[in-house]
């Protein structure tokens, strides 16, 4: 099994709303270290998505497009999409063309934050999560793959990908 040794850190049913535990810790520490990068912003899952922006305001789709194409965000390593300027695209994951038709912004946001909620065996990383990981490299420990603002920018861009 590809999932041998893989234990999803959370198994909350999608139908139930839940509040991220780390967010509560973050909130309790907010006074002590207001701008700490070591804590995740709080978010609330409703149904199969996160309806409210992680940053409290919508992202910038132009910045989001640049982020999707930057190899450091890892999107383009696995996904392809309507990006004629780059030939270095992956085919491990669905083409992003029409992503805005297939999913609501609320669903896109949850997919980026923690795709394992949809499928515990997915190879898509949880871009806004820190717990339940093994041997994280020194340079990457204690931070999510993407910041809340980066996720909002990417969500804003993906929502524009409509057929």
């Amino acid at each position: 099994m590809p999932s041998a040794g893989f234990k999803p850190s959370r198994r909350t049913p999608l139908a139930r709303s839940s509040v991220h535990i780390a967010a509560l810790i973050a909130a309790s520490l907010a006074f002590a270290c207001a701008a700490s990068a070591d804590e995740l912003a709080s978010y609330k899952i409703v149904g199969d998505g996160i309806p409210e922006p992680l940053t409290g305001s919508p992202g910038d789709g132009v910045r989001g497009r640049a982020l999707v194409l930057a190899r450091t965000t890892t999107c383009i390593l696995c996904h392809s999409g309507p990006f004629p300027e780059t030939r270095f695209q992956g085919d491990l994951a669905p083409d992003l063309t029409g992503a805005g038709n297939r999913s609501t912004t609320s669903q896109l946001r949850l997919r980026l934050v923690d795709a394992s909620r949809f499928n515990p065996e997915t190879i898509m990383p949880s871009f806004y999560r820190m717990g339940g990981l093994v041997r994280v490299g020194r340079n990457f420990a204690g931070k999510p793959i993407l910041s809340a603002a980066e996720i909002e920018d990417i969500v804003a861009f993906l929502a524009t990908l409509r057929d």
Binding site: P2, A4, G5, F6, R71, T74, I76, L77, C78, F88, Q89, G90, D91, L92, I123, P125, S126, L133, V134, R135, V136, G137, F140, A141, I145
Partner: peptide, 21 residues
């Protein structure tokens, strides 16, 4: 393992023949 949470098997057993970047 790692921040990307991927095992060797995820690519080299399950997805060979596909393309990464």
């Amino acid at each position: 393992e790692g921040q990307l949470n991927l095992a060797c098997t995820n690519c080299h057993d399950d997805n060979f023949n596909k393309r990464l970047a």
